[in-house]
């Protein structure tokens, strides 16, 4: 028994040390963010704080125009998540409920596309955006529009969701739709009234996951958006990096504020998030 107890204590010591080491970088950022710039300049960053302040957060909020960037992110992420789920569910429905010869190539097309590095497609994509009309831009181009960002997110993120949803839909007994078919329900009704409601768990999980992924994306906007005020928050964080003057305390506050919404989503929807991640691998 004592051996076991000792083992347990050892395990706790180990895990606690590891957990603290894991949190250290984030805690260091929190510590830095709460200290006045002058204090750290005078006494160094690793010093006992003379005072703590919220002013880094407030000035990052106003100086870097965070509210506007958050708004852009919402305008990209919400439609992005909804359309991705709709499209992915539609494709998943087709490949899982019918057997066409092109089912596997289609799944490959979506999933493999999702796994390509973003840089691989960026130049032609950007040229394409210059020539495709887009809504909501004075120039009439898809380039430099939030719609353009939404579409590339949808096209790029559909892969994983399709993969997950197709796996899930395969587990729904065919008898369910069969019965509806006998009742004369068309494909559209089968999809919207029978299959989609049954897919609520994976849809919730995917929605959580996609929100965080789209929120966290850094690359698309720095290439496809050229108006500073249209940047989503993650890409706009760079605005706090000065050319002549950099204030690390301010930067830390900005980085934490940028991370905050994803942390909130995570804590609120932890279960969905984790089940979302494991959905893809569950079937393995």
């Amino acid at each position: 028994m004592t051996v076991r107890l000792r083992g347990r204590i050892g395990l706790h010591v180990l895990l606690m040390a590891a957990a603290l080491a894991w949190l250290a970088p984030l805690l260091w950022a929190v510590f830095t963010a709460f200290r006045p710039y002058d204090d750290t300049q005078k006494h160094g960053y690793l010093s006992w704080p003379k005072s703590l302040t919220f002013s880094n957060f407030t000035s990052a909020w106003s100086q870097a125009q965070f509210p506007g960037y958050f708004r852009n992110t919402v305008l990209v992420a919400v439609p992005g998540v909804l359309i991705t789920l709709l499209f992915a569910a539609a494709v998943a429905f087709v490949v899982s409920r019918f057997s066409f010869w092109w089912n596997i190539p289609l799944l490959l097309l979506f999933t493999a596309g999702n796994l390509l590095p973003q840089q691989v497609i960026i130049t032609p994509l950007y040229r394409l955006y210059l020539d495709v009309p887009g809504l909501g831009s004075g120039s009439g181009k898809m380039y430099d529009t939030l719609l353009g960002l939404v579409l590339i997110h949808v096209a790029f993120q559909s892969g994983f969701s399709t993969f997950v949803l197709a796996n899930y839909m395969k587990t729904i007994p065919h008898e369910l739709t069969e019965a509806a078919l006998v009742d004369g329900a068309g494909v559209a009704r089968q999809f919207f009234q029978i299959i989609l409601p049954l897919c609520r768990p994976p849809l919730a999980a995917l929605a959580t996951l996609l929100s965080i992924w789209i929120y966290n994306d850094f690359f698309w906007a720095i290439v496809l958006i050229s108006t500073g005020s249209k940047m989503p928050i993650t890409s706009a964080l760079n605005n706090l990096v000065g050319n002549y003057f950099t204030n690390d305390n301010l930067l830390a506050a900005g980085a934490l504020m940028t991370a905050l919404p994803t942390l909130i989503i995570y804590f609120l929807l932890q279960r969905q998030f984790i089940s979302g991640l494991t959905l893809g691998s569950g079937k393995g």
């Binding site: 950007y126 210059l130 290439v223 500073g228 760079n238």
Partner: peptide
Amino acid sequence: VNVKQHENFQNQINSYLQGTP
């Protein structure tokens, strides 16, 4: 006015001038 982060502005100059200057 459209203000962009100093180095982002330079990095993007090519696409910006061709796209929506």
